[in-house]
Design a protein around this nucleic acid. Structure first.
Length: 354
DNA sequence: TCTTCCCGCCAATGG
DNA sequence: CCATTGGCGGGAAGA
């Protein structure tokens, strides 16, 4: 049982039934949450988890690190992690928004000069933990509402332009974005025009939003919050129509693309219309599926519902304070600059100039 | 074709 | 020494 299919390198028989999606982070995430998102404090042992989830150790480690860097998991000791609930997210996001956690931001420009020996230190530059936090920060601290992976990679790359470095970042960011999307922290949308995926921030409130009957009102509310958040300067929505003519920056998923709608949290949406829940959302385990996993638990949505209430109140309590933080300021300008550069190069336009 | 991203090698770290 | 951790890039599936 321990060595399922891992060893048979590339034998043709495997190709017969192999489907990439069965091994995706998205699925892994669903299964993982289904398995461990019961109460906070749940202990997770990695070997056990691997067996139950039917994944490679290496894979699980990446996944765990992502959750850990958001605060959902805490490493207790070797091979042992504890599950904190989703309730930690507001705090985490708030922290990130203020420039915490991603300690590498303390100074970014100072080392510009000493960038020469840069190869030495950017070892950590691409570690999953930092990248995850930086990626989230991108949404929380910048004014971009739709971000594609390569944009993110470029923005997060700071000053360096090394294409291979960016390429590496891109690969990591795809993984990160996928698990975040799978948890509905961000939303993944395919843009036919660009032939690319873009990601939109949903955060914590998004969940509650969807769970409510009248999302229009709530959307308005969010708008308001967003607006007051950026009272500092004008020109925030570059998505309006100021960018290039044919763009599709504002396109949002109609409701559910095939690649979405599988995540466990999505149940919330359908909550109201009971009985109409399609069976797609039942988790699909891969061929090397776990045996010990409880197939599905219908009441998990109650759980989630409760949590969401929680989030809602939390979110209300800690109103996002976007403004006036030194670190945040720096971040803003940094991203802005990078973004403008990127656009003037790649898109041949500049997004936010009068 | 280009984008997405899984697999696993192997170096670093730790006990 | 072995086990765990994690950076990194190849290259195959997907659109």
């Amino acid at each position: 049982m321990a060595q399922l299919s891992a060893n048979s390198t590339q034998f043709n028989f495997r190709k017969l039934t192999y489907c990439r999606k069965e091994k995706s982070f998205d699925l892994l995430c669903s299964n993982f949450l289904n398995l461990y998102d019961q109460d906070r404090g749940e202990m997770i042992e990695t070997h056990d988890a691997c067996a139950r989830l039917g994944v490679d150790k290496r894979r699980l480690r990446d996944f765990i690190v992502i959750l850990e860097s958001i605060g959902l998991l805490k490493k207790e000791r070797k091979n042992h992690y504890s599950w904190k609930g989703f309730g930690v997210l507001p705090k985490t996001f708030q922290l990130l928004q203020r420039g915490g956690l991603g300690e590498s931001y303390t100074r970014l420009e100072d080392d510009e000069v000493s960038q020469v020996g840069g190869k030495l230190d950017n070892r950590k530059e691409n570690c999953i933990e930092l990248l995850t936090q930086k990626f989230v920060k991108l949404f929380l601290c910048s004014e971009l509402e739709l971000i594609s992976i390569d944009e993110a990679a470029i923005l997060l790359n700071g000053d360096a332009q090394d294409p291979s470095l960016i390429q590496t970042k891109v690969k990591r960011l795809y993984d990160i974005a996928n698990v975040l999307a799978s948890m509905n922290i961000i939303q993944k949308t395919y843009q036919p025009e660009t032939k690319r995926f873009v990601f939109r921030w949903i955060g914590i409130r998004g969940e509650a939003e969807m769970a409510t009957t009248n999302d229009l009102a709530l959307k308005t509310k969010r708008r308001t919050i967003e607006n007051e958040a950026t009272d500092t300067s004008a020109k925030r929505h570059m998505g309006d129509q100021s960018s290039k003519g044919t763009t599709s920056q504002t396109v949002v998923a109609p409701s559910q693309t095939p690649c979405e709608g599988r995540s466990p949290k999505k149940v919330v949406e359908n909550d109201l219309e009971k009985g109409s829940i399609p069976d797609i959302e039942k988790h699909r385990f891969g061929p090397s599926a776990p045996k010990t996993v409880p197939q599905d638990k219908p009441k998990s949505k109650n759980n989630i519902g409760t949590q969401i209430q929680d989030w809602e109140s939390l979110a209300l309590t800690h109103r996002p304070q976007y403004h006036q933080h030194q670190a945040l300021r720096d971040l803003f300008s940094h991203y802005r600059g990078a973004w403008n550069n990127y656009h003037s190069e790649v898109a041949g336009k500049d997004p936010a100039q009068p």
